[in-house]
């Protein structure tokens, strides 16, 4: 067990955990932030995506010991993010979600995409969102919502 000082959604958090513990489980179990989801544990599905130091990150494979001082931002903070809020609104107005379980990760990826690429093409969307799995198959609407958010932000 080791104590780590984390910055999560602009708040300082101290956690005492095994250094090998993935960030995902620290968020979900120690910090009680369950918006970030467990889907596969091997970075195959993207349901656990958060931003670490601005980089969209699969938190299920990132041991807490490798987080360092980089700030962690999760889905819970997206409503207060300029782009995050627009993306969430686009998701709602396009009625994207079905079961909804993958959508935290989808939104975290979409926000990262739009921050870097304000006017994404279909190819940009397919490449950047290519690692986020949705078993309900909401991809058509995810694509629409990203484009709608881009228009809104443009």
């Amino acid at each position: 067990m080791e104590t780590f000082k984390l910055t999560v959604n602009c708040q300082q958090k101290d956690v005492t955990v095994d250094p090998s513990t993935p960030l995902l489980w620290v968020l979900r179990e120690d910090l009680k932030m369950s918006g970030t989801k467990y889907g596969c544990g091997i970075a195959a599905c993207g349901a656990c995506t958060v931003h670490v130091g601005g980089v969209p990150t699969r938190s299920c494979v990132l041991p807490i010991s490798l987080v360092g001082e980089r700030p962690v931002v999760t889905i819970e903070a997206m409503s207060n993010d300029t782009i995050g809020r627009v993306v969430e609104e686009a998701w709602e107005s396009e009625d994207v979600v079905q079961c909804g379980y993958c959508q935290s990760g989808q939104i975290m990826s979409a926000v990262a995409l739009l921050k870097a690429t304000p006017k994404p093409t279909d190819k940009d969307i397919e490449e950047s969102m290519g690692g986020n799995l949705c078993r309900c198959g909401t991809y058509v609407r995810i694509r629409q919502a990203i484009k709608a958010a881009a228009r809104q932000l443009g």
Binding site: S34, G35, D95, V96, G100, Q103
Partner: peptide, 27 residues
């Protein structure tokens, strides 16, 4: 008609079965 459960599923607040958390709970 848009879904009633959209917002919670977009902002991370919707709890699923796996998110159940009870005092003293074990895994």
């Amino acid at each position: 008609t848009r879904r009633l459960d959209s917002r919670g599923k977009c902002n991370g607040s919707q709890k699923f079965g796996l998110d159940v958390d009870l005092p003293g709970m074990k895994v």
